[in-house]
């Protein structure tokens, strides 16, 4: 008897949660989004195929999610070779060399986007509007109901974002109208694999990620730019193992020393 939460089933759940955003983003950003999505998907599938033949790592539908995250959050990239380069780096270094999705430390989409933002700083990326934000909200609901998105991370990230925005003297409601920010909050910060995995770790990870989004957004890139949420996720997921280690140390006090 086996449950439904196999790795591939979970990735299909994330793909279906993304469908409303696909519609909204196509309306908002136009045909170029689909073009970027196609190129990124082809590149990621190629690398998955390479690792399938060389390392016997099965293909994963998570390629669809990574490719779409790149398409939405790298809205300004016109040169397709830039996407080819970044997606290759992101999927190989961020995911495949660790053994594929489920064993990675950072989200492959985040690595791809960070590579794009760093390597090609002259390209201007614009955010998306409230339509994408609403669609991502529906996706978040599905993920919460299915237990793929941790409610602790969702609540902690929202609280971290609101409190840090408040502390910086800005309007706490403004970030939730930015499509790319809400999208990143749900699908990048809420990524079940690259986020923290213990109860206390998730609270700390979510709060840090939310606060970093506000700080990067208001103080640096601009709250409407997609850079804030990507860099916040990158930094927060690097801290996630530390939070987990602390949470485990606290939670296992009662067993420790048991095995002499």
């Amino acid at each position: 008897m086996r449950g439904v939460w196999h790795r591939d089933t979970v990735s299909w759940i994330i793909v279906s949660a993304m469908l409303p955003v696909v519609v909204a983003a196509s309306l908002d950003l136009g045909f170029a989004t689909m073009q970027r999505f196609g190129v990124a998907l082809a590149v990621i599938s190629f690398w998955q195929g390479v690792f399938l033949f060389t390392r016997a790592q099965p293909l994963s539908p998570i390629a669809l999610v990574t490719a779409f995250a790149v398409a939405v959050l790298a809205s300004g990239t016109t040169e397709m070779w830039q996407i080819v380069l970044a997606a290759s780096f992101g999927t190989v270094i961020g995911e495949q060399i660790f053994g594929g999705w489920g064993r990675n430390v950072v989200n492959a989409g985040v690595v791809t986007l960070a590579f794009l933002y760093f390597a090609f700083p002259e390209v201007l990326h614009t955010g998306t509007g409230p339509l994408v934000a609403i669609a991502a909200g529906f996706g978040a609901l599905l993920l919460l109901v299915m237990g793929v998105l941790s409610w602790r991370i969702a609540v902690a990230a929202t609280m971290g974002l609101v409190l840090a925005t408040f502390a910086l003297g800005q309007d706490p409601a403004a970030p939730f109208l930015e499509g790319s920010l809400v999208f990143g909050l749900v699908f990048l910060i809420g990524d079940p694999v690259a986020s923290a995995s213990t109860r206390m770790g998730r609270w700390a990870y979510g709060a840090l990620a939310g606060a970093l989004v506000a700080i990067f957004g208001w103080a640096d890139a601009g709250i409407d730019a997609p850079q804030a949420v990507v860099f916040a996720t990158l930094l927060a997921s690097l801290f996630a193992p530390l939070f987990d280690a602390a949470a485990v140390a606290v939670a296992t006090r009662k067993w420790r020393g048991g095995h002499a």
Binding site: G3, W5, H6, R7, D8, V10, S11, L52, R55, A56, Q57, P58, L59, G99, G100, W101, G102, R103, M146, G147, V148, S150, W151, P192, V193, S197
Partner: peptide, 16 residues
């Protein structure tokens, strides 16, 4: 092609 070298990793969901 489906015969993997290692079992697929599990994804930490609420069920886990």
């Amino acid at each position: 092609l489906g015969r993997a070298s290692a079992p697929a990793a599990f994804v930490p969901t609420a069920a886990v």
